[in-house]
Design a binder for these strands. Structure first.
Lengths: 218, 218
DNA sequence: CATTTAACTTGCCAATCGACAAGTAATATA
DNA sequence: TATATTACTTGTCGATTGGCAAGTTAAATG
């Protein structure tokens, strides 16, 4: 009877899905905590509470706080890789003159969608430890080199301002991200939500206008 | 005999100076801890150890961790107010055409000199709590309005790019500060110290070139 | 010289931290 | 049906947290 086997398989699948749902809730809560409060400022017990799970499940599913951080960071970096990779693919379909501006606007849109990314990078970019090393190897260095490559090509074409690629990277990253990673401050200063689609688009244009030279047809 | 009185006064003064030295060491260590590890991620005991003082002195001199944070933040904001105020005064002596660029360059230099400021703002700018409120009222809002004022005047003169002042503020602040607040990451990516005077000057020019329109004589 | 005061020291407290281990309950397998 | 495995639950541990209070030490004051 294949029916019984199917039912058993469905039950097994469902059990697996439940465990995966628990892992997912914990990863999401961990990402929020680690990115806003830092690694040492986040407690596993509070993460479990925020995730709506019971107390020992982080150690059961991940083994340690360190392993939870790596799982959460890996989850975020895989999303980042996928979305920014897609943006780069779209960019390559355009005329080279427009590529830098497109990349900048895509990057700002992505940062608004995932402020946890830049919050995490800020938390971990201050001190040299195992978490910064992990992030550099896993995601930052490849992205850094992609940005420098696009910038250097744009500089050849005359669509990028004349500066060192390294400084361009930090001007771009800082300009693109601060209004979103410090959203609470930005909202208090302007009484408008910086994550609203219209505000995001305005900011994307502001950054792109600042960092490309074809800002208006001559 | 005034001599005895003078000696007594000197001793009293010295005793007072020692207490003040202790307070100062604690404030310095607190600023380093709070800005890099966040408020909850910093422990008073570790701050005391880093300051080279004994264990109960934070509670003796400041009464609580919260009061220590306020003392450290007030110390940093008074330095900021003094230095950026001086920069604004110098700026006002220049031709109006050059004022925005001068302010941007001065601001970048200051951020490189005091990376704790932007690290603290990043730590506290993510969530609405009593520390963000304190910082907004004490320092951020006045500075924000000064920057917007200078930018709006530059926009009238045609020396600033066309964008909303609020977005200009965050483009400027992010572009100016990230390479310094994430100095460990930046050093790992470029193998040069981002806080070295030459690197600071290069970055100041990169930010100023991006955010002013008189980038080169036409 | 006796007393007061300021600066510092130390022991202790309840709460919380990450981690481990011994459970229970439900499902899968033989 | 008996056994094993998976997912989850809970009790407890030693270490650390912020804070309080009772000290000690040394200088100022009368």
């Amino acid at each position: 009877m294949q029916n019984n086997a199917q039912i058993a398989a469905a039950r097994s699948e469902r059990k697996l899905r439940d465990a995966e749902a628990t892992r997912r809730k914990l990863v999401d809560a961990a990402l929020l905590a680690f990115s806003t409060q830092g690694y040492d400022g986040s407690s596993t017990r509070n993460i479990e509470t925020q995730a709506g799970t019971k107390r020992g499940l982080i150690n059961y599913h991940f083994g340690s706080k360190k392993a939870l951080w790596k799982a959460a960071a890996e989850h975020l970096m895989s999303i980042t890789e996928r979305d920014l990779g897609a943006a780069l693919a779209d960019m390559n379909k355009l005329d080279e003159d427009q590529q830098l501006r497109f990349l900048i606007r895509s990057y700002v849109q992505f940062c608004a969608k995932h402020p946890e990314l830049n919050r995490l990078m800020i938390q971990e970019g201050m001190a040299r430890d195992w978490r910064l090393s992990w992030l550099l190897k896993r995601a930052v260095r490849p992205w850094y080199e992609q940005v420098c490559r696009v910038f250097n090509r744009a500089a050849e074409l005359g669509t990028a301002p004349k500066m060192d690629a390294h400084h361009f990277y930090y001007v771009l990253t800082g300009a693109a991200t601060l209004i979103f990673s410090n959203a609470a401050e930005a909202a208090a200063l302007s009484s408008e939500n910086p994550l609203a689609p219209k505000a995001v688009d305005t900011h994307a244009n502001a950054v792109a206008d600042s960092l490309t030279l074809n800002r208006s047809p001559l």
